Amino acid sequence: MQTVSVKGAEIPALGFGVFRMSDDEVERVVPAALEAGFTHFDTAQIYGNEAALGRALHAAGARRENLFLTTKVWVDKYSPEPFAASVTESLDKLKVDQVDLLLLHWPGDKVAIADQIAMLNAVQAAGRTRFIGVSNQNVAQLRESVALSAAPIVTNQIELHPYLDQQAMVKAAAASGVSLTAYFGMADGAVPRDEQLCAIGARHGKSAAQVGLRWLIQQGFIALSKTAKPERVAENIAIFDFVLSDEDMAAIGKLARPDGRLVSPPGLAPAWDA
Rank of each mutant, 00 (worst) to 15 (best):
I252P: 10
D246Y: 00
E89R: 14
V111C: 04
S176N: 09
D259F: 02
D188K: 15
L224V: 02
A209Y: 02
R28H: 12
F83W: 02
A238F: 14
D241R: 00
A190G: 09
E195A: 13
L101S: 06
L94A: 04
G133M: 07
V6F: 04
I11M: 10
D92F: 08
T155W: 03
A36P: 12
E231H: 08
M119H: 10
V191N: 04
Q45K: 09
K72N: 09
R130E: 09
A122T: 12
E231A: 14
A187W: 08
A122Y: 05
E27Q: 13
R261F: 11
L69K: 07
D76N: 12
L94M: 03
F19M: 11
A62Q: 09
A168S: 14
Q137S: 10
L120S: 00
Y163G: 05
L142H: 06
K226F: 05
A147D: 15
A147L: 10
A173M: 01
K77W: 03
M21G: 02
K77R: 15
I222Y: 01
A209W: 00
D23E: 06
D188A: 14
Q166S: 09
Q167T: 13
D259G: 06
K72P: 14
E35G: 11
D23L: 00
R214T: 08
A33Y: 01
Y78E: 06
I117V: 15
L94E: 03
R257L: 03
L103Y: 04
F38N: 07
V191F: 04
W106L: 09
H204V: 07
R55Y: 11
Q167M: 11
Q219C: 11
A256K: 06
A271P: 10
V26D: 02
K7F: 05
D97H: 04
R28T: 13
T88G: 07
E144M: 05
